[in-house]
Design a protein around this nucleic acid. Structure first.
Lengths: 230, 230
DNA sequence: ATTTGGCGTGAACAATTTGTAAAGTCTGGA
DNA sequence: TCCAGACTTTACAAATTGTTCACGCCAAAT
């Protein structure tokens, strides 16, 4: 499957240039003309990487960057005008993975994209992403640690795995049976109410920490890890 | 190319039911009425997946399962009567990949088929669009969210499914009985006026939002989701 | 205009689903 | 073996949804 790149850039010339070049290199490219549109396209297509301009109408690059970071680990490369060096700090703080200054050469863009993808897929190709970061919440399956509001919370395996699974696809609903299949294993034949109990215990650990996400019940269907735009 | 499924089941009703549903989902279905026939058809068409009943004349499910396993890695899902929990162990030992207990819901069968295929090959039948977008209206069955005019509207399962079904084929009329079959399930025997009530509640949520679409009554026939050129 | 069957609506009732506490079971380590 | 923590099951109240029913109105046919 092709690697997909979302370009968020209001200057149509630059956007088209990038698109043309990247498509020639075999990337699947989507273009958004402002921050708001970028965010909505991001949610719709879940690209492998985002090229994000800083100066944009409607919603600037930093905001988009932070919002994306609150929902996903997708690598982000920021594009900014020359001379705004202080932006670099802001950008990296907002969660960007790399940083390119205009005017840039296409070769450089390509090189950086490949570097970032290598870095992130080097982790995700073999293993899946084993670490999820949301606002005030870190789910680290490598260290097997749950960090809530800066504090480590001792959490049993099943709860960790359940939360990790739900949070891996924010906003998506899973039925109890799906969760039993995926978290407990397809050969598990227990009562589906077991899920309820684990959700309850997770909620005790997570409640009141952030307005941006929560474990939500979808009545008559199941559960989801809901993330509201930050 | 279509994904092919072989159903080995001696109960003609169940077999036809499964066939109908799976074909509607885009699978190429072949049916065999007993174990021996199942095995010979398996060898002839080499399906991508096998649905295998346990209790059958001529050659029971376990034997067929073991024989298939000796020749191929094709995923196998066993079908068995309720309450025979020890069969679960036997089934998994015989090499089955999953296990469904009768009576089952079609949705669950589909979910399990897709789960097994995803595990083994990563290929499933074409997915339907699970998300419909109209002017000021988003029906998202993955997140199980109805968004009207930018606001999320809390909507019960039946209403969501009914709206989704109607909106999947805009301008097409469905009779109450068709809707009961498709949304409520073929085995539902309630009053068809139930549909009216759900339509009414949907209309309350949707009224006055857009000129471009509406839930319309087709007198003497049924309902449709009407979309006027946008 | 009248008639007839279909439809909209509100409310009562039934059924299902969920939150939660608590008890029971399992498991690995001391 | 015993213990402690983790997991599962059970039970029941509370919340939410699904269904039925009755009544009055409306569309279409005569």
């Amino acid at each position: 499957m092709a690697v997909s790149v979302l370009i968020v850039e209001d200057d149509r010339n630059i956007a088209e240039l990038l698109q043309m070049y990247l498509e020639k290199e075999g990337y699947a490219v989507t273009v958004a003309a402002d921050g708001a549109q970028g965010l909505s396209k991001f949610r719709a297509i879940k690209p492998d990487l985002v090229l994000l301009d800083v100066m944009m109408p409607v919603m600037d690059g930093w905001s988009v960057c932070k919002t994306i970071r609150a929902e996903a680990q997708t690598p982000i490369i920021m594009l900014t005008a020359k001379g705004e060096t202080e932006d670099k700090v802001t950008g990296l703080k907002s969660g960007a993975d790399d940083y390119i200054t205009k005017p840039f050469e296409m070769k450089e863009v390509l090189a950086r994209i490949e570097a970032v993808l290598r870095r992130s897929t080097g982790v995700t190709a073999e293993k899946k992403a084993r670490r999820l970061v949301f606002d005030k919440l870190i789910i680290d399956m490598d260290a097997f640690e749950l960090t809530v509001d800066g504090k480590k919370i001792d959490t049993p395996p099943k709860e960790m795995e359940l939360l990790f699974y739900l949070a891996s696809s924010p906003n998506r609903v899973y039925t109890r049976n799906q969760l039993l299949d995926e978290v407990w294993g397809f050969d598990y034949f227990g009562d589906s109410r077991t899920v309820d109990v684990h959700v309850k215990r997770l909620r005790e650990k997570l409640e009141g920490v952030s307005e941006n996400w929560s474990l939500k019940t979808v009545w008559g269907v199941g559960y989801k890890f809901e993330v509201t735009g930050g």
